[in-house]
Structure formats: C-alpha cells, structure tokens
C-alpha cells in the first residue's frame, strides 16, 4: 500500500527541482515508515513527466491528465489531487512549497478534514508520525509541529532536503485517474498568460547576488546630462548598480535579489525581494551588496551557507552575520570581483 504521496508541481509539462526534492524527502520518510513512494501529477499531456518521477524514486504515479487541466485552476487541480489521495490512501502527502503547492495543500487539508504543516525545513518520525520543523516569523523563530489527522499534509521548503539524483534505469506503474472536473463546471477561465523573462529562481538558486539601498550611493558616477530630476538620477544610479550585480550573477549562474529598501525605492521589481515580506531563500552563497542588514532582510536569508557582505559603511549590521566582509564601494569592488571570478572559474 502506498504510504507517501508526493505532489509534482508541473507547469506546461515541466517540474522544478523542488518537486524532485520532495520525492527525495518522501523516500526518506517511506524508508522510515516502511511504506511505498507514490507521486501525483495533475495537468494536460503530462504522462512523460511520470517517467521523470520514476527516475527520482516514485514507484507509482497517479495521473490526472485532461485538457481541462492545461492551465492551472485551483479547483480543477484540487479535485485531481483529491482523487489521487483517495486512490493512494497515503499516510503522508508531501508538496514542494511553491505557490501552487501551498494552495493545493491547503485545499486538500479541507477536503480530507486534515491540517497542513507549511514550509517544513526538517522532518523526523516519532511513533509513526512526522514531526516537522518549520520556521515562523520569517525564520526568527522555529516551531515543531505535527499533523494529527490522516493524511498528514506537509509542504517542504526548497533546498532543505538534499539534492535528488535521477536514476534513468528506474520505472514504475501509472494509474490514470478519472472523474475529473468537466470544463463547464470550472468557475475560472484562463484568458491569457504573460510569461516572465527567464532568469534563475530565487528560491531554487545556489547563489544569490543581492542589492540594497546602497546601489544608488555613488557620488562619483557621471549622470547623463538629460537626467535632472533627483529621483530619476537616483533610479539611474541604482540601475547602474544593479547592472553590476547582474553581471556578477551571470558569471555565477546566480539569481538577483534585493532588500525591501531597494524595492520600495523602485530600484527593482518586487519579484526580487528577499526578507520577511519577500522571499525566504537558502542559497549556498549569498552576496549582499549595499545592504545594511535590517532584521526583516536578514530573516529571509539567514539559512544561506556563506554570506559575503560588501558595504561602504563598516558599521553596517550585515557585517556581524557575514562570513566575509568587504568595506568598500560596490561600484569599485563588484567589477573587480566579477573579473576575478571569470578568471578563476575559467569563464
């Protein structure tokens, strides 16, 4: 009997690493609880993804595959997931903590009269049940929680459960689900989708280069004569600063982050914000440029393995948390660092 069911969060037939990490975490639980590992995939034309799920350790895949599931609509996906849960009868259902994963976990909890443990960073098994560690207050506090109903529904933080590796020799059984929602019964119609430009996702990133208010703080920068408005000059300078950050990010295959101060000052879009009211990240390397280190920012990146801080102000709080600190002007130091990485990485 299937004991652990993992939701694979796909979009247009592709799933991110966070889903495969959830399978890896599911395998760990299945070994401890002595059950099998199943996956559920909801979408349209997603059967090929089942093979990838097998390669990452699923023994069985429940497939809700229908044209009505081509676009994400919460209710239609939730029903596919509920059907899979009914068929698999799992002890535990795991999700990656993506926006869809979080939403569907919430809906499944109501559908199954259970609860959900959100954004777990660790899982232990005690008396046959999962005890999850989850950060609250953006990581300023950690809580230990348990779900006391069946199934135990848990969403997992990206990058917290190890690096999954695919084994292409693995295969498994596919169970197709029926009884899905008819198009006419779905209250939401998708009219259009605007895709955002690529770039590395902050939550999946191994390396993040972030900018703060200080990216506009360069008196020596020569501003083009046609820009005279004070705010426009500030934004122009910030754009130059984030340009340097982007160049370093490109060399390191890194994502670009930002502090709330930089986002509030309109230097960069909110999608880049790291911190308590932005994204919580856990890269191996976090390079903070011109970021003072406000509590709300530090809360969102304190799980980074190695923190490097570059700031003009040697007293900035960010240096207390940094493994390596450079007191200096990012406009001087960043280009040199980018050039040095290119040299040492042979790029």
């Amino acid at each position: 009997m299937a004991k652990i069911l993992v939701f694979i969060d796909q979009y247009k037939g592709e799933a991110g690493m966070a889903s495969w990490e959830a399978l890896l975490a599911g395998k760990m639980l299945a070994d401890k609880l002595g059950g099998g590992l199943s996956a559920v995939i909801v979408g349209s034309g997603v059967e090929a993804l089942a093979n990838t799920a097998f390669h990452y350790g699923a023994e069985e895949v429940f497939l809700a595959d229908d044209v009505s599931l081509a676009d994400y609509r919460a209710e239609a996906y939730a029903l596919g997931l509920a059907k899979a849960t009914e068929a698999a009868d799992p002890e535990v259902v795991l999700f990656p903590t993506t926006t869809r994963g979080r939403e569907l976990a919430a809906m499944l909890a109501i559908d199954t009269d259970s609860g959900v443990l959100v954004d777990a960073t660790e899982m232990d098994v005690e008396d046959g049940a999962v005890v999850a560690t989850r950060p609250i207050y953006a990581g300023k506090v950690i809580a230990k929680v348990k779900c006391e109903a069946k199934p135990q529904i848990i969403t997992l933080r990206a990058r917290a459960f190890g690096k999954p590796e695919a084994d292409e020799s693995l295969s498994g059984n596919i169970t197709k689900l029926d009884g899905l929602m008819a198009e006419a019964d779905i209250a939401t119609k998708v009219l259009d989708t605007e895709m955002v430009e690529g770039g590395v996702s902050l939550t999946d990133a191994n390396v993040i280069v972030s900018g703060g208010r200080g990216v506009s703080n360069n008196a020596g920068l020569e501003v083009p004569g046609d820009i005279t408005d004070e705010k426009e000059i500030e934004i122009w300078k910030a754009t130059q600063g984030f340009g340097l950050i982007q160049e370093l990010a490109d060399v390191l295959d890194a994502a670009v982050g930002a502090s709330r101060a930089a986002v509030d000052a309109n230097y960069i879009s909110y999608a880049h914000q790291v911190g308590q009211t932005g994204k919580t990240v856990a890269p191996d390397l976090y390079i903070a440029c011109g970021i003072s280190g406000a509590i709300q920012h530090m809360a969102g990146m304190r799980s980074s393995k190695v923190l490097v801080a570059i700031n003009k102000d040697g007293d900035a709080p960010v240096f207390k948390e940094a493994r390596y600190g450079v007191v200096g002007d990012l406009f001087d130091v960043l280009p040199a660092i980018t050039a040095e990485f290119k040299k040492q990485l042979g790029k």
Binding site: V141, I142, K144, K146, C147, R323, A336, E340
Partner: peptide, 30 residues
C-alpha cells in the same frame, strides 16, 4: 485542531567567524 504544536525555539545560533577582506586595490580585494 489538526496541527499540534510542540513548542517554539530560537533558531540555532549561526556559528560565524567574521573575516574582513582587505587589499590595496579593488583587484587585490577581489
């Protein structure tokens, strides 16, 4: 309630050694 709390704690203290990187020029620092 479906979720049981076992309690809250401070996050583990990050064991960090701060090291300032210095140099005569940006290139040397880099």
């Amino acid at each position: 309630n479906k979720v049981k709390w076992f309690g809250v704690d401070n996050p583990p203290v990050r064991d960090i050694t701060n090291e300032k990187i210095e140099g005569e020029t940006p290139e040397e620092i880099a």
